[in-house]
Every structure is written in structure tokens, then in C-alpha cells.
């Protein structure tokens, strides 16, 4: 079983990520993360096929997170793909899903990602990460400790440094 990082730990991944051309039948096998296009075209069938089972959906960088707002509480996992290394749309998608749309489930980043992006993506609201195969996940965990603070607000830190500083009397 493949591994991923979830909540800063390396764990087994029991989910199947379905390809862009996946069918409802494939999704019916359970614990599937379906592409947004399939969700949009076959929403009712997917809900029926899942029954009381769990559902996940994945978005590409160009996909609009607002498209799944009404269904967010149906998903155990929302995943966002960085199709190319350096595609920073994923960072904005994560913040929108958490901060604007209030998504509370697992927010998974996958695709062309390196350990060097972990901390920023976590700040943007992601809590699960599938990195490139070349990355050693245990080693990669150190990246979460690379920076001890941040100036800005983010999904993980609702108060900017200047307000926290003021509150702490520094």
C-alpha cells in the first residue's frame, strides 16, 4: 500500500486516486478519490454507488473550488493536484477551501510536490501530502520545522504576526 504524510506522520494510504477518465463503476469499489469532472457529470450515480461508504474528489489547479461548495460535507477527502512542479494555484485552492468554504475533512495535496513545499502547503490548509516518488517521506517530515513563524495570516494561522506580537506584549 502506498504511503503518504498525514498530520505530519507517515501512514499507509487506503484510498485509490482515480484517473481523469475514471468511470462510476471504478468508483463503486469504495474509498475512491474521483476526478471533479466525473463528480460533475455523475454526481447522483456516485452518491448511489458509494451508499454509506466514503467519497473523495480531486481538483486540478485550474478547477474552481467553489464548484463543490454545496457538496463539501459529503467528502472525506478533497485532494488538489499540482500537475507541474511550481504550480502555486494549489496554495490558493487550499486556503479557499478551508477559510472561505469551511471544509473540515482531509485536504490532500498530490502531484509534482517536493518536501520543500510541505510547510507552506500546510499553512494553506493541507493536512495530507502525497509527494513525488523520489522523496523519502520520513526525511521529508523535517521540512515542517523549517520555519518557526510566519508574518502572514493563513488557513493554519488566522492571526498575523503583528496581532500576535501585540497580544503577547512583544
Amino acid at each position: 500500500m502506498a504511503k503518504l504524510i498525514r498530520n505530519r506522520k507517515v501512514v499507509e494510504d487506503s484510498w485509490r486516486l482515480l484517473p481523469p477518465d475514471a468511470t462510476v463503476e471504478q468508483a463503486a469499489e469504495g474509498d475512491s478519490i474521483v476526478p471533479l469532472s466525473l463528480w460533475k457529470s455523475s454526481r447522483e450515480a456516485l452518491i448511489a454507488a458509494a451508499g454509506s461508504g466514503r467519497l473523495g474528489v480531486w481538483l486540478d489547479g485550474a478547477d474552481e473550488p467553489g464548484d463543490i461548495v454545496a457538496d463539501l460535507d459529503r467528502f472525506t477527502i478533497v485532494a488538489v493536484r499540482a500537475a507541474k512542479f511550481g504550480d502555486g494555484r494549489i496554495n490558493s485552492s487550499g486556503r479557499l477551501l478551508r477559510e472561505r468554504y469551511g471544509y473540515k475533512g482531509e485536504l490532500r495535496a498530490f502531484g509534482e510536490l517536493l518536501r520543500d513545499q510541505l510547510l507552506m502547503l500546510e499553512r494553506c490548509g493541507f493536512d495530507a501530502f502525497v509527494l513525488r516518488d523520489s522523496e523519502n517521506l520520513e526525511d521529508a517530515l523535517a521540512a515542517f520545522g523549517e520555519f518557526s513563524d510566519q508574518y502572514q495570516v493563513s488557513a493554519q494561522e488566522p492571526q498575523p504576526l503583528f496581532r500576535r506580537r501585540l497580544a503577547a506584549g512583544r
Partner: peptide
């Protein structure tokens, strides 16, 4: 400068 330094969202712009 502080806002732009390591901005979590905008470190990978187009």
C-alpha cells in the same frame, strides 16, 4: 517586505 516574505500562498506565482 514582511508581508511578502515567505507568503504561504504566493511563493509559486505564474
Amino acid at each position: 517586505r514582511q508581508w511578502s516574505t515567505f507568503h504561504p500562498e504566493f511563493n509559486w506565482l505564474p
